[in-house]
Design a protein around this nucleic acid. Structure first.
Length: 591
RNA sequence: GCGCCCAUAGCUCAGCGGAUAGAGCAACUGCCUUCUAAGCAGUGGGUCGGAGGUUCGAGUCCUCCUGGGCGCGCCA
C-alpha cells in the first residue's frame, strides 16, 4: 500500500501531464501542510510551473485541482482548493485515511537490496568509550530501519585487532611470561599504558614490539596464542556493552582487520600491476618506500592535495612493508561486494574520516571493485562535554561506555524511586519491575538523545537533559506508550475489527499523523536523517497526549466511539513501539 | 594553503526552496473526586553570524566575508 503522499504525488503527476501534455521535468511538490487550516497536504507544483508555461499561477492551480479531482478514481481527495499565490490545498477523504491506517507499523515489503552496514568498530584491548557510542547507536538504527523496509542487512563490525598496539602488548606479555595466566580487560589497559611508556624509553623493547607485529602477521604460534587471548577477553567485554546497549550487533558479525590480512598483499599487488606510474585517472607509485595511490580528475588534475599543495596520496603500504587502514578497507570492500554480494555498502564513522572515505571510495571505484553497489559514508559529529570540548573524564581520559551507561541507569533508577515514594504517583512496582524500567529508561534516554540530534553536528552530552521526562526525550515517548497500555489493560477485551470514527479534531489529527509513518521513513532513509523519525514520534506522542486529555476512551459517549478510540490507541501504541524499536529503544508496559 | 562541518529565542536544539521561523529547558498563570500530573492548556521571548546574488518565493540554493570545530604521507 503506497503512502498517502505517494498516492497524491502520482495523482498530481498524472494531472500535470494531462495539462502540460508532456511528462518532462514535472515535479508534484507534495508536502504535508504546516497548518491544518490548509488541509492535509499541499501541492506547490503550479507556482513554479506557471512561469515556465507563461500562465497565471492561481489559474493553473485551479485547472490542476479540476484535473486531479477528475482523475481521482480511488476516492483519495475530499477537496482541492487554490490558496494564496497558487498553493493547492488538499484534503484527504475519511475512507482513504482509514484505509491508509490498515496494517500501519507492519514491515514494508519491497524488493530489497543486500546491504552491508559497517558500524561500531571498537578497538580490541581497550574498553569501549564514548567515542564508540554514536557509530554503534546510529549504525544499529540504520540496520533496523533497513530491515523494516525489506532489505537484507549484513552487519559488519570491523574491529581493530591487528594494529601496532598488539606488538607492544604481545611483547610485554611474552617478556614477562604471563601467557598462561588469565588477563582481564582492566589489566590489559594498564598493561598497554605500561608497554607504551616502556617503549618510549627503551629502544630494545621498541624493537621487540616491532618484531612481534611481524611475528603475529606471519603466524608465529606463541605470538598468535597471546593475541588470541587478548582478542577473546576484549570481545567478551564488547559483547557485554552491546547487550546492555541493546544492539542487534553480535559477535558473529565481527570481522576484524585480521580477517583481511591474507588479502592485503594481493590488493596492493593488483593495484600496482594494473595502475603503474603514469596511469590516469589513478596511478600507483612507490614513493620514499611507501606504496601510494594518486587520484586525478577528468582534467588530469590531482583530486586531493595535502597541506603543502602537493598531490595527496592514499597510502596502501608503509615503507617497512606493513599495510595500513586503507589497505584493509579496500580488501574489506572487495570481500563485501564479491563474497557477501552486497549491492549497498554503508559505513558509519565520525566525520573526521570523511577525507579518507572519499579517497578510499574513489580508489575502489577506479579499480572497478565496487560494481553496481552504492557506497555511502554516514558521518556524525563529536560528543562534547559541558565545556564544549570532546567529552573526557576530569583526569582527561575517555569516558568508558560501561560507566556512562551505568550512570544513566542509576539516574533513571533514582527517578523511579522518587515517584514510588510519592503517594500521588506511586504505582507499586516490584523490585524487578523497577530495575527493568530504570534500565529501559536510562539506556533509551542515552540512545534517543543521540539519535534525535542532527547527525552532522557535535552535541553536548547531558544526563539531565536526556533523562528529562518532558520534551523530546525517550522517557516522554515511553510514558505515552505506557499510558496507552494502561487504558488497554483496563479496557479488558479489545474490539475486533472496530470501525474508526474520526469526528473529533483530536482523533483525526492523531489518525493523520499515524498514517504518515511510512512516508517519514522514506525521508529518514534519504540522507539517514534519523532525527526525523524522532521528531515524528515526538509529534505522535504529543498528539496522543492531547487526544488523551480531550477524548475519554473508556468513558466514550457511545460504544462505537469507545471501540474506535480503543483502536486508535492500539495503532498509536503500535507505531510508538515499532518506531522506538527501529531506533533500538525498548518500551515498557508500565512506568 | 586546500577540503569538510557548524553559526537560528537567555540555554540546548528542530526546521526536504513554500503561507505568520518551531520545540524543550528556564520564567510566569491555570488544570488531578474522571482512562498513569513522568501529563495538558496558556503568556512572554527572534536583525535566522554579516553582505551581495538566483527565484513568483530564501533560515534553506550560489558567491564573498567574519567567527568556531575538524581533517590533510607512512595512526586508525
Amino acid at each position: 500500500m503506497a503512502t498517502l503522499a505517494g498516492r497524491l504525488e502520482a495523482l498530481t503527476l498524472r494531472a500535470l501531464e494531462q495539462i502540460v501534455g508532456d511528462s518532462e521535468g514535472l515535479s508534484a511538490q507534495i508536502a504535508p501542510t504546516r497548518d491544518e487550516k490548509h488541509g492535509d497536504y499541499q501541492c506547490n507544483a503550479a507556482l513554479g510551473l506557471a512561469r515556465r508555461l507563461g500562465r497565471n499561477p492561481r489559474e493553473l492551480s485551479g485547472e490542476l485541482a479540476q484535473a486531479m479531482l477528475a482523475l481521482d478514481e480511488t476516492g483519495l481527495l475530499r477537496t482541492a482548493e487554490v490558496a494564496g499565490p497558487g498553493f493547492l490545498n488538499l484534503r484527504v477523504r475519511e475512507e482513504a485515511l482509514k484505509a491508509a491506517l490498515k496494517g500501519i507499523g507492519d514491515p514494508v515489503r519491497s524488493a530489497g537490496r543486500r546491504v552491508v552496514v559497517d558500524y561500531s568498530s571498537p578497538n580490541i584491548a581497550k574498553q569501549m568509550h564514548v567515542g564508540h557510542l554514536r557509530s554503534s547507536i546510529i549504525g544499529d538504527a540504520i540496520c533496523r530501519i533497513l530491515e523494516h523496509l525489506g532489505h537484507e542487512v549484513k552487519r559488519q563490525n570491523h574491529v581493530g585487532d591487528w594494529g601496532t598496539q598488539f606488538g607492544l602488548l604481545c611483547a610485554w606479555l611474552l617478556d614477562r611470561g604471563v601467557e598462561d595466566s588469565r588477563v582481564d580487560l582492566g589489566d590489559l589497559e594498564a598493561l598497554y599504558r605500561e608497554a607504551q611508556a616502556l617503549a618510549e624509553r627503551d629502544e630494545a623493547f621498541r624493537e621487540r614490539s616491532r618484531e612481534r607485529v611481524v611475528a603475529l602477521h606471519q603466524g608465529d604460534q606463541p605470538t598468535r596464542e597471546t593475541w588470541r587471548r587478548i582478542v577473546g577477553t576484549s570481545l567478551e567485554h564488547i559483547g557485554e556493552v552491546y547487550e546492555r546497549l541493546g544492539l542487534s550487533l553480535t559477535l558473529a558479525d565481527t570481522r576484524g582487520e585480521s580477517f583481511y590480512n591474507p588479502m592485503l598483499a594481493g590488493v596492493v599487488e593488483e593495484l600496482q600491476v594494473r595502475f603503474p606510474a603514469g596511469s590516469r585517472p589513478m596511478e600507483v607509485v612507490e614513493d620514499q618506500g611507501a606504496v601510494c595511490v594518486f587520484l586525478y580528475d577528468e582534467e588530469g588534475q590531482p583530486r586531493f592535495k595535502n597541506a603543502q599543495g602537493e598531490p595527496q596520496p592514499l597510502l596502501v603500504r608503509k615503507s617497512d612493508g606493513a599495510f595500513l587502514y586503507p589497505t584493509t578497507d579496500l580488501a574489506a570492500l572487495r570481500y563485501r561486494v564479491r563474497d557477501l554480494e552486497a549491492d549497498w555498502l554503508i559505513y558509519v564513522t565520525d566525520s573526521r574520516q570523511a577525507l579518507h572515505f572519499q579517497m578510499f571510495f574513489q580508489t575502489a571505484r577506479e579499480a572497478g571493485w565496487v560494481g553496481e553497489s552504492l557506497l555511502e559514508h554516514v558521518t556524525f559529529g563529536t560528543v562534547l562535554g559541558p565545556d564544549g570540548k570532546p567529552l573526557k573524564t576530569r583526569s582527561g581520559e575517555n569516558v568508558k561506555l560501561a560507566e556512562l551507561l551505568g550512570e544513566a541507569v542509576e539516574r533513571a533508577d533514582r527517578l523511579v524511586e522518587d515517584n514510588e515514594s510519592d503517594p500521588a504517583r506511586k504505582r507499586g512496582f516490584s523490585a524487578d519491575e523497577k530495575r527493568d524500567i530504570a534500565e529501559a529508561v536510562g539506556i533509551g534516554a542515552v540512545k534517543y538523545a543521540d539519535l534525535s540530534q542532527n547527525r552532522s553536528s557535535d552535541y553536548v552530552f547531558s544526563f539531565d537533559r536526556m533523562l528529562a521526562m518532558e520534551g523530546n526525550t525517550a522517557p516522554y515517548l515511553m510514558y505515552a506508550y505506557a499510558r496507552i497500555r494502561s487504558i488497554q489493560r483496563r479496557a479488558g477485551e479489545l474490539p475486533h475489527e472496530p470501525a474508526l470514527t474520526l469526528e473529533e479534531a483530536h482523533e483525526r489529527r492523531l489518525a493523520m499523523h499515524l498514517a504518515r509513518l511510512d512516508e517519514t521513513l522514506d525521508q529518514v532513509v534519504s540522507g539517514w536523517r534519523l532525527n526525523l523519525l524522532c521528531e515524528y514520534l515526538y509529534g505522535l506522542a504529543g498528539l496522543f497526549m492531547k487526544f488523551y486529555e480531550n477524548c475519554p476512551v473508556l468513558g466514550a459517549p457511545t460504544p462505537e466511539q469507545r471501540a474506535s478510540r480503543l483502536d486508535l490507541c492500539e495503532k498509536a501504541a503500535r507505531v510508538l513501539k515499532v518506531g522506538l524499536e527501529l531506533l533500538g529503544i525498548r518500551v515498557v508496559e508500565r512506568m
